[in-house]
Structures are given as C-alpha cells and as structure tokens.
C-alpha cells in the first residue's frame, strides 16, 4: 500500500515537475500537503524516504511523506495548503511532512529528524497539528514557537536518540514522550519543554538564550553575497548566523 502511495506521489510529482508541469490534465492528481514558499541557498527535498534528494525550487509542492532538507546557512519556508501553519526550517535540518485528509479537514504531522524549526500555527478547529521528533510528540492548538532536535551520539541507528526542545512564544501545546518512560503534560506561552531519549522531561520558563532562539527563528532576514564573476554578478542569498 505504501509502495503504491509512493508510486502515485512519484507520478504526480513527475507531472508537477516535468516540462509540461503547467498543463492541466483530466487525470485527478493527489493534493499536496504543503509547499515550499521560500528557499534560501541550499534546500533539497524528496518525495519519500525511498526517493533521492533533489534540489527544491520555490513553490515546490510537498505531498504526504515528503521531506525537506536544508544545508548550512540555508532556510526553507514551508506552508501547509490549508493555510494553517508556516514553518521556518533553519539550517542543517531535516523535516518530514505528513498529511491525512479527511473531507475538508487536513490532519498534519511535521516530523523533525534533526535541526531547528520555527513555527506559526493558527488555531485548529477540528483538525490536528502535530510536531514529532524522535523523542517527543506535541499537539498544537494554535501557537508560535520553535522546535529543535539535537541528535545524540547514537545517530540515526538509535530511534530514541538525542534531545528535543520545544520553546513556546504563545499558545498552548500538549506533549508526550516518544521513548523511555511514558510521560505527558502541557506547556504554555513563555515556557519550554525538553525531552531526551530516556523520556526524561524538563520544563520551565524560557531562558534568555531560548528567547533569542525564538527571535532568531521567527525572522527570515537573509544576507546577500554579491560576487563579480566572468559571467556577470553572482548573488548568493544566505541565512546569517
């Protein structure tokens, strides 16, 4: 079933990304879950785990199971197609996008493998918006903040490796552990929760460093490096530190 889905996605993507991608067709195509609204420097995407990484372009649609990867000093803005959420995928991050459509509702799940994501999620009515990391599941009800996941020494081999930190600017989030001791709770605006691979939970009010992270992830200010090369002026847009 999953393979079939992947095939459909691939076929759809081929139609989207191909030379005739703007030609409408009678064939009913699947609906993307999100799109890449802005790209700075090095952003790649793939249709699913089984696909290869490809260079993403502005406006790239992301289907259920799609992944986005950012390189050093890079940034991707990901927008969900129900207009419910905007994610700022910061440098050196990998984010998986999942969407489960049920009639007019779209249940979303953004799985952060590693890196840092700033988010603004509008109030969810009957829909679900989840952030997951290897160690945490967070249900969003309408909030803004940042989610980061640092890989541990075990690397990709250990599913419960690393430590995740959710920093909230406003709103409320229910969280639960994904590994180790089962635990859950909620955190409000101005607070954070940190969960490691053993299921240890640490919560509290945001520190100054965490507020800095919020400020950093809530902006998309970029810098442009201009180089005069033989072919003309080369401009490289990148995310400043």
């Amino acid at each position: 079933m999953k393979l079939l889905l992947i095939c459909i996605c691939l076929i759809s993507f081929t139609a989207v990304a191909g030379n005739e991608k703007n030609q409408p067709s009678d064939e009913k195509k699947p609906t993307p879950v999100a799109l890449v609204k802005k790209i700075v420097k090095d952003v790649k995407y793939k249709e699913s785990d089984e696909s290869d990484w490809e260079i993403a372009k502005t406006g790239e649609p992301l289907f259920d199971g799609g992944l986005v990867k950012t390189g050093t000093k890079s940034l991707a803005l990901v927008l969900f197609i129900d207009g419910s959420g905007l994610l700022r995928v910061r440098e050196n991050s990998i984010l998986n996008i999942y969407g489960d459509r049920d009639g007019k509702t779209l249940n979303k799940n953004a799985f952060l493998e590693k890196g840092l994501v700033g988010f603004e999620v509008s109030k969810q009515e009957d829909e679900e918006f989840k952030f997951t990391t290897p160690t945490m599941v967070a249900s969003i009800r309408g909030t803004s903040g940042a989610l980061g996941h640092e890989e541990g020494e075990g690397g990709d081999e250990n599913q419960c490796d690393g430590i995740s930190t959710l920093i909230l600017n406003e709103g409320d989030v229910d969280y639960q552990t994904n590994c180790g001791d089962q635990g859950s709770g909620s955190v409000g605006g101005g607070g954070f929760v940190q969960i490691d691979g053993d299921g240890n939970i640490n919560t509290g009010d945001n520190s100054n460093d965490q507020e800095d992270i919020l400020n950093q992830t809530s902006s998309i200010d970029t810098k442009i490096l201009r180089l005069q090369v033989e072919e003309g002026l080369l401009e490289i847009e990148y995310e400043p530190e």
């Binding site: 759809s12 139609a15 703007n22 409408p24 406006g59 649609p61």
Partner: peptide, 30 residues
C-alpha cells in the same frame, strides 16, 4: 476542475497545474 484563474483579467487557467485541490502557476514558464 472548473475553477478559473485570472491574472490582471487575463484567463490563465490553461497555464495552471491542478494538483488535486491545489492549483499552481509558475511564472517562470510563462
């Protein structure tokens, strides 16, 4: 599928991609 898209009153529907319930138009192609 019957949706019409106009840019500056010019019908650009045939230049758009219908991906399920999402409609996309890439300016660089046109």
């Amino acid at each position: 599928s019957k949706t019409k898209i106009f840019l500056n009153n010019q019908d650009i529907t045939d230049k758009c991609l219908f991906a399920g319930d999402v409609i996309l138009f890439y300016g660089e192609n046109f």
